[in-house]
Design a protein around this nucleic acid. Structure first.
Length: 739
DNA sequence: CAGCTGTATCTTTTT
DNA sequence: GATACAGCTG
């Protein structure tokens, strides 16, 4: 029987069959990327007789991995359990779990989320007397994470010229922080990626083991990989070069998280022998939507460039709504949903409302709730980030890994047991002197002279409680353990009694939901014939995203950020808040590279739509506590007007419509004065002029484009050795005397 | 030590 | 317009 290529176009078929050597698949939005990937894997297994255990496939979310796995199993008609499929983080965690001993970690290590990282950093910076007023733990966490994503170590930082005050402290903070994590038998999100690479670097035998095992490596959403992820992949494929990456530079939206778009732009340099396939036929969106999205993204400079086309009908025009404010916008969303439901007979699940920031969801939620429209919201506070859930998880983490003092401190006095801050720091000090972990120090609390016997008794009671649960954890099932835990520690009682009725109910309900998810997890594991132990559950939970738990089959309108929408599709998409300062976001507007990422974000949003696309902006929007007057996003002017149908609200439509239209086109003209136009003779900026910028320091102007406030200024910054393209109006650049 | 109250900061996106 | 945290009081 020969392989069934049904449903694949010619280019897709070629990409499927080119199994050996490096392959780059440039796949535009809606071009059947997932289909191609699943068939490629199925082809490897079926036609090339590759064992599932020899394949690693990296996806962007766990949800994508699950879906791809089940589609492949459908094609094959058999399970492919030994095939490694998951996110970088989950795959790396798996390797780390196996090889922990080589890195001085216990295999029961804990994964710290951002919250835990900040707590750990607070401790470290107090120890190093870093001025916390100037450099908050949150800021440091951010900076440190960026550094780690670039695979830099404290020693590397020391060799570099410090750019600001924090850089002076950073190597020490970094070193102490890692030491602290090690003593807690914990790793953070970034370590999950770094540690395996470190291990591969220092232990060739282990690297070879994995490189030999994974003869075929596939990476989806390659445009959003960071440098560490790039290195990880490189280590695995450097011998056999059987690497297939799929991506679309126009959908790179995670630059702020360290994603390096040059990974995909330079794939050909890394692997000169690479075969390149371009998937440019779009199967998802009606032509008007696609044309509009193309028209927007073509304004970006940093792209390979492609011509995405479709055989589908033109369809409706894109509807653009000008709202008075965010309340009016929400009202219009409700109207649109009603209209789509009744006149087009759509289901709630066909509709998605997208926005730039999570904060925008509130008003929309209120409006939907008032109008009895079912909705689910993806993102914001994750289920597993809710306080009542995190408290329980902290208990579980201690049980698995008693060295985890961050979690221990979180719950040692919750529910209240009368063990306060002072007592804990005394015990911490004792632990340091004795060179033992905090948890063991609790058991020896009586040796600390400054702690009263009454207090010692309370501490010991807590210690025994946890000890007892550690013993129970091997006897009870997961669900039994957790339900015993919530009752015996008094957590359940606390949430049932300590709050007003409404809050109490919702928290208890969340705890019940946790029980459900544990049961579900246990069943899934059983089905996959994998152990359903506590450590596995905790790992899954810390690597889960909100999208992973979202279920499109539910009958509800989906609300989420543009970022979360990546990879999804809906018949109807409504994108809100297309305003200067919001999309693009204010702080991105000065730098061309960041502005382009905002443009890609809108592109991603628009290309989620199959049949109907709605856009809106408000003339006025509440931000923080005051109202801001907005101008429409410059991106709106990039959409050809014949593709847009303006919708106005009942009141005062005509005057508003006319006045706005004019100011819009004038604005955009100014914004996109191109290189061909005359150089502004009166400007204080000339090529060669030395300038100063608050963040990047001193520099020199390399070239100028356009004129007036929207002039694009390319500057080479000497201190940082980087060239940046800035937009005058927002860049806050000042000329300085030549030195 | 716990609970209360006022203040600062947050809002960019997330593995 | 919430929420975390510092600082104060009982």
């Amino acid at each position: 029987m020969s392989f069934n290529f049904k449903g694949l176009n010619e280019e897709q078929q070629k990409a499927v069959q080119c199994t050996e050597g490096p392959v780059l698949i440039l796949a535009g939005a809606g071009s059947g990327k997932t289909r191609t990937l699943t068939h490629r894997i199925a082809y490897l297994l079926l036609e090339k007789k590759v064992k599932p255990s020899s394949v690693m496939a990296v996806t962007f979310t766990n949800k994508a991995a699950r879906e791809m796995r089940s589609r492949i199993e459908e094609i094959l008609g058999s399970t492919i359990a030994p095939l490694w499929m998951g996110t970088f983080h989950s795959i790396c965690a798996r390797i780390l779990r196996r090889e922990a001993e080589h890195l001085g970690l216990g295999q029961n290590f804990t994964i710290y989320d951002v919250d835990d990282q900040v707590r750990a950093l607070k401790k470290v910076i107090a120890l190093l007397s870093v001025p916390q007023q100037i450099y908050s733990a949150k800021l440091i966490q951010n900076r440190l994470s960026r550094v780690k994503n670039r695979f830099l170590f404290p020693a590397d930082l020391e060799k570099m010229e410090p750019q600001d005050g924090l850089d002076e402290y950073l190597p020490d903070i970094y070193r102490e922080y890692q030491k602290y994590l090690m003593s807690n038998n914990a790793v953070d999100f970034d370590d999950l990626l770094l540690k395996p690479i470190e291990l591969f670097n220092k232990n060739e035998k282990i690297r070879k083991k994995y490189a030999d095992k994974f003869r075929y490596v596939l990476v989806d959403e390659y445009q959003d990989t960071n440098h560490a992820q790039y290195l990880f992949i490189k280590k695995l494929v450097q011998d056999h070069h059987n690497i297939c990456v799929v991506g679309d530079e126009d959908q790179s939206i995670y630059g702020w998280r360290g994603a390096d778009i040059s990974n995909i732009l330079n794939f050909n340099k890394d692997f000169p022998e690479a075969s390149v396939f371009r998937l440019e036929e779009n199967y998802r969106s009606h032509d008007n939507i696609l044309k509009a999205a193309n028209a927007v993204v073509k304004n970006n400079e940093s792209r390979i460039g492609k011509n995405l086309w479709t055989k589908l009908q033109a369809g409706d025009k894109i509807r653009l709504y000008e709202a008075d404010d965010e309340l009016d916008e929400a009202k219009h969303i409700v109207e649109v949903i009603h209209d789509e439901m009744f006149t087009k007979k759509r289901n709630f699940r066909d509709i998605a409302v997208l926005y730039r920031t999570n904060a925008q969801s509130r008003v929309i939620e209120d409006a939907l709730r008032k109008n009895d429209i079912n909705y689910t919201i993806v993102g914001g506070t994750r289920f597993y980030d809710r306080k009542e859930i995190k408290d329980i998880l902290a208990y579980l983490k201690i049980i698995v890994n008693p060295a985890d003092s961050i979690s221990l401190k979180r719950i040692v006095n919750f529910p209240l047991r009368g063990i306060g801050e002072t007592t804990i720091s005394k015990i911490e000090k004792f632990a340091e002197i004795e060179q033992i972990i905090l948890f063991e120090a609790l058991g020896r609390v009586e040796e600390i002279a400054s702690i009263s016997p009454a207090m010692s008794a309370r501490v010991l009671e807590f210690y025994k409680l946890i000890k007892n649960f550690i013993g129970l954890s091997s006897e009870l099932s997961l669900v039994e353990l957790v339900s015993t835990l919530t009752s015996e520690t008094g957590i359940m009682h606390h949430y049932q009694t300590e709050y007003d009725q409404y809050e109490s109910e919702s928290r208890v309900e969340n705890i019940r939901e946790l029980f459900n998810s544990i049961e579900q997890f246990t069943e899934e594991r059983k089905r996959d014939k994998q152990p359903a132990d506590l450590a596995a559950f905790l790992e899954e939970v810390s690597l889960l995203t909100d999208v992973d738990t979202w279920n499109q089959a539910n009958s509800a309108v989906t609300l989420m950020t543009l970022h979360a929408a990546k990879g999804l599709e809906f018949p109807v998409v409504y994108i809100t808040g297309l305003e200067m300062g919001l999309l693009p976001l204010q702080r991105t507007m000065a730098q061309l590279a960041e502005l382009e990422e905002e443009r890609r974000l809108l592109y991603v949003g628009m290309t989620r739509a199959e049949e109907n696309l709605y856009l809106s902006y408000t003339r006025q929007r509440r931000r923080y506590s005051s109202s801001v007057v907005n101008t429409p996003s410059l991106f709106l002017d990039e959409i050809p007007s014949e593709l847009i149908e303006m919708i106005t609200s009942g009141k005062g439509k005509t005057s508003v419509g006319r006045g706005r239209k004019k100011s819009r086109s004038k604005k955009i003209q100014a914004y996109f004065e191109h290189a061909g136009s005359q150089i502004d003779e009166d400007s204080e900026f000339k090529v060669g002029q030395p300038v100063y910028h608050a963040t990047f320091g001193k520099g020199k102007i390399v070239s100028l484009e356009g004129r007036g406030e929207n002039m694009k200024i390319t500057v080479y910054f000497t201190d940082e050795d980087i060239t940046k393209k800035l937009i005058k109006q927002y860049a806050n650049l000042s000329p300085i005397e030549a030195t």
